[in-house]
Design a binder for these strands. Sequence first.
DNA 1: TTATAAATGGAAACTATTTCTGTTTATCCT
DNA 2: AGGATAAACAGAAATAGTTTCCATTTATAA
Lengths: 146, 146
Amino acid sequence: MKEAYLLMRDAGLKLTPRRQAIIAMFSDSRVQLSPQEVQERLKCQFIRCGLPGVYRNLEALADCGVLFRVVGFGRERSYALCCCSQRDGVHHHHHVICISCGLVGQVESCAYQEGVVIEGFRVVSHVLQLRGICASCSSRETEASG
Amino acid sequence: MKEAYLLMRDAGLKLTPRRQAIIAMFSDSRVQLSPQEVQERLKCQFIRCGLPGVYRNLEALADCGVLFRVVGFGRERSYALCCCSQRDGVHHHHHVICISCGLVGQVESCAYQEGVVIEGFRVVSHVLQLRGICASCSSRETEASG
DNA sequence: TTATAAATGGAAACTATTTCTGTTTATCCT
DNA sequence: AGGATAAACAGAAATAGTTTCCATTTATAA
Ligand SMILES: [Mn+2]
Ligand SMILES: [Mn+2]
Ligand SMILES: [Zn+2]
Ligand SMILES: [Zn+2]
């Protein structure tokens, strides 16, 4: 949380009530959220809250590393909290999201760093995102069925 | 090419002139194409050609494995020819696209097969797509600069 | 406190995608 | 070859996600 504010400050972003609320929202329930969902939830705290502002804020927070953009095929955008402290030296990483509780994990190992040659192609960039079951959800499953 | 028709037949898709043209288009220039771009190119051969039909065909061809869906962040869809013969036993694989010539390569090695545990998460599904420079584009680059 | 650039809401524009409907056509079966 | 049938088709219109624009407010630093 503190971390997020530092990232914002580094990027020259102001700390507005709207942004505090958005960050708190993503921290509380660690799931991916679409702009519409974010607006929906903001309306509990702010009577008026325009979608354009939500879009702007989500993009700004993704730009400075507080959120990351969830990739997919289709039209809807989606964001989630980047679990990783990127302030001291950004390192290459990806995310795995628990489909049960929404926990976001950091995937450090990546075979596709820039420059690596795979199947004859020199890799320039890549997209990787995982969905899975986290350790605690997994053990809860085992208990229930066993 | 023949391969594609068999995949379509397996899926119960009719072999229409529209679909033949779409497949030929993707085979000729091995780049990813948006529905709009596909329609644009179809207009050379067909006077009338509606976008809804293009959308339907691209989805149908992706469903049966002739094309694959290029992932990204945002609203625009994009497809490319799946290089891999999926008919005899579909195997897990991904794609790398040459950013210079559009060549699509098959990435066989994948550390994220279903069931694998990564950073404490049991992997259920994942998205992976690479962009790079293919061997021939790479050597052409070297020639030019050397 | 004051100056300033940034953030904001709302209306409206924009754009990608989907739905709907009536017509045409590929394919299968005589 | 001819007919039946489900699939494919175009085009118009609807839908939905996103962006632009502009006048007003506000966080931040001097
Ligand atoms: Mn990576
Ligand atoms: Mn894989
Ligand atoms: Zn979990
Ligand atoms: Zn190439």
